[in-house]
Write a protein that binds this DNA or RNA. Sequence first.
DNA 1: CGGTTGTTTGATAGGCCTCAAAGTCAGTGG
DNA 2: CCACTGACTTTGAGGCCTATCAAACAACCG
Lengths: 248, 248
Amino acid sequence: MNDSHSTGGMIGAHLAKLRARNPISAEEEQVIRASVREIIKVPAQGTAAPAMTPLDVSMILISGIAARQKDLRDGKRQITELQVPGDYTDLHSFTLKYLDHDVVAMTDCTFAVVPHTRLREMTERHPRLTRIYWFATNLDAAIHREWELSLGRRSATASMAHLFCELYVRLGIVGLAQDGRFDLPLTQTQLGECLGITPVHANRTLQDLRRADLLDFASGMVRILDLDGLKRTGDFNPAYLYLEPQDR
Amino acid sequence: MNDSHSTGGMIGAHLAKLRARNPISAEEEQVIRASVREIIKVPAQGTAAPAMTPLDVSMILISGIAARQKDLRDGKRQITELQVPGDYTDLHSFTLKYLDHDVVAMTDCTFAVVPHTRLREMTERHPRLTRIYWFATNLDAAIHREWELSLGRRSATASMAHLFCELYVRLGIVGLAQDGRFDLPLTQTQLGECLGITPVHANRTLQDLRRADLLDFASGMVRILDLDGLKRTGDFNPAYLYLEPQDR
DNA sequence: CGGTTGTTTGATAGGCCTCAAAGTCAGTGG
DNA sequence: CCACTGACTTTGAGGCCTATCAAACAACCG
């Protein structure tokens, strides 16, 4: 039917993300691999999934950094969540039918494309996998809530620290962060769009963290120098990332 | 098994909310009614579902206003979503197993309690209902994203206007708002906790809207005087509430 | 090497916060 | 029936955090 070796072979990060939260059997892994129809590339700044448009596929991010973003009439932009490799960037389009936001590629990205027809089959035949993917979208909502807390109540410095902590954990799960280091090819403007601040203030906020010897962010590379201190200034508690494996 | 007449009979608002987005058959309605184990009351300020605690039931709000809220170390509080009658306030606890936030009663509330065991049965036997409830949690996430946009990019006045527009639509769906009027027994402090502003500023923001003849909010009653104007100042577009019925 | 994109710095402005106190109103009890 | 209380709303003054505007600096690129 589909060539699950050439396509399903690239979703190692996705399986790692799932397995960090629930056991996945060999049979389930096979179903997941077989759900992928094709692999596509989206260049930096490109739109992977447009808002307000009927969709019949969902996409798993294989490589690169993507984001959900919403725009205001006056051109102001808010990123509501960052996506890292392994994330199902628009699994929710399966039930929503269209998206209330754009999914955009922050860097050059590769995606695995999964037709909604196969997700529908999954809900008919694989209730446990269905619960696991339902959980995955609920995890996105939990991240949204934590960002609401940052946007509403945390200072810019605390929000920035919190964001780096979150990314360190999420990238670590899929093997893309270790020893306090990870690649993050985002501009300061884009970081500001995550935190609801201007590029100028994003810059000054990063300088704060640098001056406090908490982390260094330069040329797309993050070096966390004091993880405990960073967690403290960001009021970071990873419970909202649901890292303990559970039976679902 | 359970007395679905005495318990399931109170979820009319819930069915109305579901039917605004998808057809629900008589058989499915029966499954939903039968899923309710009991009805409980939670007094104003009480915690309906505590954060960070293993849960084995989910709850449908029957009457009253509830909220998801997250706290910061320093006591600052952020409400991440308001819940109105008909909403499944913690359906996501079925897959999350514990919540990253409290569900608190803003007013005296009544809830229908649904054991997770019955939700699990639903995922095994009723794939279409599963998709519909999956959608319901994705709708919560969409609301979270819209609030992120308010918190990050909208002015306090615009955010406040937007919030009233959202509540007018959501309460209208379940028959609790009409002709620009609805009950909203919240304090200005609580409204501020939704928007990430202080009580003092919430007060001044409400005065702005009053002075602009957009709406009046007094003694727990909202009167929208100029809905179009309110939508314009709040940059409100209801697309994120997914109001068109779809096959799921 | 000019052009473009992104970062950094400086000066000023403004939205929202903080602190403080007065005003309003419903409920309670003498 | 009138203090009295407590919760909430409103007003005022001053200050801080972040935005805005402008320009210089740095880095990459064809």
